[in-house]
Design a protein around this nucleic acid. Sequence first.
DNA 1: GGTTGTGAATCATTTCACAGCC
DNA 2: GGCTGTGAAATGATTCACAACC
Lengths: 256, 256
Amino acid sequence: MSQHRHPGAPGRAGAVPALPDLPEATVARLPEYLRALHALADAGDETVSSEALANAAGVNSAKLRKDLSHLGSYGTRGVGYDVALLIDQIESVLGLTQCRSVALVGVGNLGHALAGYDGFASRGFRIAALFDADRARIGEQINGLVVRHIDELPRVAAEESISIGVIATPAPAAQAVADQLVAVGVTSILNFAPCVLSVPEGVDVRKVDLAIELQILSFHEHRKASLTALPATGGSALTALPGGLAATDTQEAIGT
Amino acid sequence: MSQHRHPGAPGRAGAVPALPDLPEATVARLPEYLRALHALADAGDETVSSEALANAAGVNSAKLRKDLSHLGSYGTRGVGYDVALLIDQIESVLGLTQCRSVALVGVGNLGHALAGYDGFASRGFRIAALFDADRARIGEQINGLVVRHIDELPRVAAEESISIGVIATPAPAAQAVADQLVAVGVTSILNFAPCVLSVPEGVDVRKVDLAIELQILSFHEHRKASLTALPATGGSALTALPGGLAATDTQEAIGT
DNA sequence: GGTTGTGAATCATTTCACAGCC
DNA sequence: GGCTGTGAAATGATTCACAACC
């Protein structure tokens, strides 16, 4: 990430509670643990071992224990972790104890879907405002929210205490939107437009590019095809068409 | 084929794959380079320096050069990289020389948007079939494609040479869909459902969870808020850097 | 018995810095 | 002069393995 790193000791000792300096990789996994923990809580479990939780979150148990140890961790040896306690702990670290308000800019194809996605609300986020630059869309209602013109961003951002901006515009518009978000004080942006945004120091940008995900998969697909094509030198070129069943054997699904 | 080998590695055991064995982090960045290169090509540029390309892709130049060196390197010292040549090279490595067919399962809110997203087609992917389990949706047309029942997957997958499966169903349905995709020979899955999938060895799964992205941003937002409440930690340069293109590292680098 | 927490070891990735080439 | 390619150093992340604890 960028170099905002604040050196360990803040002058005098002991003043700060558990303001954690977590490894970025750990931060990226905490939400997944949280999701798994909620599922366990819904199922009525009160404690869980690192092995079981790691399984539910798709990581190995050593990594999970190391991650949790960074937050000071409330586990009991021989028993495991208290599910409810751990949920509180992780939500507190992630700053999810307060519901955060999100402004979504760009209600085209993707933005429309995001505006209607209920996975946000159920996990601590409230889509508080929708914006677009296209006058034809202004006034349209999506999921109980009216689409406003982007020019209203300053007023609405102040009213709604916008905490996070989501950009779902076409690429050419994204930088201008980012600038506008930054101008009204937004310091966290989730960018779905396929382009790089430049923002001042102190503003965090995360990017989700759907085509890039497919291209990464394409690489692995390509690699797998090449591997089966030449197990030995001069191997016969079996047609790589996945028409029927693949040649691989193992079909067992692991776990639930 | 690359003959790149690190001769210094002592005591290496096991087989070395005969294929270009790129670091995973490099693979994840190649699509971003590709996008930047296409933009340069559209602008008429014929060559580009590592510095300029790195800037356009949101990374630093040393990383970019190291990444490109892994693919055998097509640059000219003192000049830079040939844009067209590099595009070909990267597309070839990523397996994008053939257009790959994608099956999309789940045409709810998000799936609907994905089906209509033109960013796929423009970057080497063809959405070849849409599926859903809800009988009420069968027959609906989206972007010229008709929604089929998931039971038709085996027949259609064979007809269309499906290469990649995209899951955009609710979480409870996702595992069953993954099993069905695997059963018809799909070995690459992009999962938008908020859950962990278990698949046999050899199948690649990438996961995109929109709420998780927001939660990671929430953490940084939370941390920044806590920091401003603290006394200064030395000369933390909060000021905007000269020029608008300053924060090259701020995006992208946060996790994968 | 079982399980956590954690130093130490291994592995991966990024950055530095400069030789070599244009 | 400018630029790439790349060993070597530095940083970061993962895994191992086991002592401490219930």
